[in-house]
Design a binder for these strands. Structure first.
Lengths: 212, 212
DNA sequence: AAGTTATCTGATCATACGATCAGATAACTG
DNA sequence: CAGTTATCTGATCGTATGATCAGATAACTT
């Protein structure tokens, strides 16, 4: 029997190394982010993973399930990275925590452009996948961020800026830039990542947000 | 014989009203922007235009040609709108022209979110359509904008900001916001267009760019 | 070793999709 | 009006794609 997982269920039941399945997931993350759901074919994903196409339907009920698992995978990594960062900052004041979390997010975005690319590719009108993505992954992070920044504003630690603006700066200026690097190169022959290290970019965003 | 047009040829040979063809083009612009090239089917486009599917292949050689014609259409409207604005400003100083052109661009973006949506949907890795789109439409506008702003900077009319930053503010903050309104609503139950008139948003961007 | 389950493949199916074509209808021309 | 061209449709084709299935192979259990 295939190890069927529901689209929303995190992959935690079998912790052992399942390298073939993982390779398929990695290939799916890559191709879905590069070409969107409709633009990526299961054969292409299989080829990149070095397996045959029917194997995808063995490990995942359908292409749609595979997409959900892939998104679960990449967003799980993000959540884990952020949690680990917070965990390592017990006792530190919330302002410093916020600064370091934003940095962590930018670093992750630079290292995993697939994450923002997938979001971008799913920005379709009346898209069910986008609804799921927002509900399950984006909103939780968004609300945590907003509540953290709201506390900092109330405490007078940072200037009072609308929460949506904060989020816009972080995700937009802070992360999407890395994703749009290829388009930037296409347009102006200029790649932001070549001229500016991630750390420098993180500095800019931090200054923008925290005014320091 | 079908009125075949090459993908890059502007539709200027037959100026008379061709309402069916125009309805197909409008439907194509809508659906390509809502669902991307691969996500939109020719049958769906035909249905929205109120015609049968084979008619698309009569007016356009292929789905790819239809996409090019649709992009040609919407970007042609933009170019025309900007040109008309410039035409009506003969003799006006370049700083005022720049301000009004930026406004015009934001108004157009708000009225035609399909334009930025199409760009967004074609942000794929190694996408031939994106290459064409940048070469034929985006770069010309980009270079014109940059050269205009460069002159203003040299003249000391506006603060010295890197050209790419200028373009980023205009297109990013200025226009993409309207396109991402559905996602904004999805995420935070907040639609920027409901809370903020286009004029107000244009004010914000203008202030950001021209510091006045 | 034998039995059992998990993993993987080749062959194939059903369908959705873009394209084609013969022919109908409408519009235009002389 | 007759002839011609432009416009449009129903039927159909070829193919790409996601899914299925029987069976092979590997791994694991007792």
């Amino acid at each position: 029997m295939a190890s069927q997982t529901s689209p929303t269920a995190a992959r935690t039941t079998r912790p052992s190394a399942d390298s073939t399945r993982d390779r398929i997931l990695a290939a799916a993350v890559d191709l879905f982010s590069e070409r969107s759901f409709e633009g990526a074919t299961t054969r292409e994903i299989a080829a990149r993973a070095g397996v045959t196409q029917p194997l995808l339907n063995y490990h995942f009920r359908s292409k749609e399930h595979l997409w959900h698992a892939a998104v679960e995978d990449i967003f799980g990594e993000l959540t884990q990275a952020l949690s680990a960062r917070i965990e390592g900052l017990r006792g530190v004041d919330e302002l410093s925590v916020a600064k370091l979390i934003v940095r962590e997010f930018i670093y992750f975005s630079a290292a995993h452009p697939q994450l923002h690319r997938i979001i971008m590719q799913e920005c379709k009108v009346d898209g069910a996948r986008m609804d799921w993505l927002v509900d399950r992954h984006i909103r939780p992070i968004y609300e945590q961020t907003v509540s953290l920044f709201t506390r900092l504003v109330e405490r007078g630690d940072i200037p009072d800026v609308p929460a949506t603006h904060i989020y816009y700066v972080i995700t937009g200026a802070g992360a999407t830039m890395f994703v749009l690097a290829p388009e930037c190169r296409r347009l102006a022959g200029f790649d932001p990542l070549e001229h500016q290290a991630v750390e420098v970019h993180a500095d800019v965003v931090t200054t923008l947000l925290f005014g320091s």
